[in-house]
Design a protein around this nucleic acid. Structure first.
Lengths: 221, 221
DNA sequence: ACAATATTCCATGGATCTATGGAGGATGCC
DNA sequence: GGCATCCTCCATAGATCCATGGAATATTGT
């Protein structure tokens, strides 16, 4: 094998990791995994994929080293292989948004155009500690259990309409969900506004919160 | 278009950026562009690609927003679209190295197994300022011109054997090149050792130097 | 306007990727 | 052991990607 062939082999190995990031469905899977580990079946359902298709995508991710597995009885739990994988995924999205013109319209088409007031992570922390706001986690319960902002209340967005009374009505609500491109908090804030509640949204979500090394609270396993 | 379709559209847009990173040849092109802008022809030759093939890959990179172009007369200069693109490329390589078992053997097969002593960026700075070492840039002259470590001497590795006398012989030499996976500094250090010179290698190279926001010196344009 | 140079566009065959149904393996329960 | 569940492996058809040669386009110089 010549020098050029060895160079190609090395760069092809890097490209294998890039290839894992080259499918929208695989990125959706990474998005889910960034919230915590999940079984193949749960991932397939959450991503709207055929089971075998989801399994194949997960194999691709595993081959690239982006995810790892753990067997528990009959099921296999997938998880991100490390924090650096989440960082890579987040940076990919940021670069795409900055340099690719098509992202912004696709983003507003998906998330909605309402200009709900946003707060950033630091502001949320200080205002929550001051008791000025209540923090609301609108992700599915299992994701809340796997790790959430300390002190946050969990009401999955599908249950929010009927459980809205559980929220104290003397303070503003700050809703958050998975990350900068997650629709759940957008939906939640719209719904709260319809019910006449003051509601804000965290600029991004749990993905970025973890990457910023802010405190995370998890249910006892 | 339903909600799921809008979500797919957004994630497919992210995936377009991932797709740009999914080919070894495109990563080699990014590697070259991280050193400074270049024409299509120069990139094709440096990467060992057919001109039309190189052009096609560059179009892919451009569509993903990773590179930008500038026309100067009859030629078109490609460059990275931003520092964040270099950061994404560097992080991709780091994640691949950390989590993909095949990378390490491919790396040593390409770069060689000699355990030449390495210095990191901080050590290089302090020892160069103290006059204990001379810093040697072994990249092609055009890359040196586009930006180099302040005070570094430029001797492209192909000319090193015949120009070795230009190096002062009372201090150690620290060679560097493009980045952590660039073979040039490895070759240079081997060659210097063969000539009985004390030589070290910077752990990585210009790519990481720029990302660390360390001072860069460029030739007047 | 014409020729020369640099690059992109187009068409094509071969390789690779995606989604999917069905078979096969591993584990746990009875 | 027998059976159900969960997941992976295999085969396949359709779509997409890659490398390459030749045509088309844009700019410069004569």
């Amino acid at each position: 094998m010549g020098d050029a062939a060895r160079k190609s082999a090395l760069y092809d190995a890097f490209a294998l990791t890039g290839k894992a990031l080259s499918s929208g469905k695989r990125l959706e899977l990474l998005d889910l995994l960034a919230q915590g580990e999940r079984t193949v079946d749960a991932l397939a359902k959450a991503a709207g994929l055929n089971l075998t298709t989801a399994s194949a995508h997960l194999q691709t991710l595993k081959q690239a080293g982006l995810v790892a597995t753990r067997r528990e009885g009959v099921r296999i739990h997938y998880r991100l292989a490390g924090d650096d994988v989440a960082a890579l995924y987040a940076l990919l999205r940021q670069v795409a948004r900055t340099h690719q013109a098509a992202v912004e319209p696709a983003r507003t088409a998906y998330l909605g155009t309402d200009a709900a007031q946003e707060v950033d992570r630091e502001e949320l922390l200080t205002r929550a500690q001051a008791g000025e706001v209540v923090v609301l986690d609108v992700r599915p319960g299992e994701e809340y259990a796997a790790g959430h902002i300390p002190g946050a209340i969990s009401i999955p967005v599908e249950e929010l309409a009927e459980r809205i009374a559980e929220l104290p009505d003397d303070v503003e609500v700050v809703a958050y969900c998975r990350g900068a491109y997650c629709v759940l908090a957008h939906d939640a804030v719209r719904l709260l506004h319809q019910h006449g509640r003051k509601a804000l949204r965290l600029t991004d979500g749990m993905l970025e919160w973890r990457l910023a090394d802010l405190p995370v609270e998890a249910e006892a396993a």
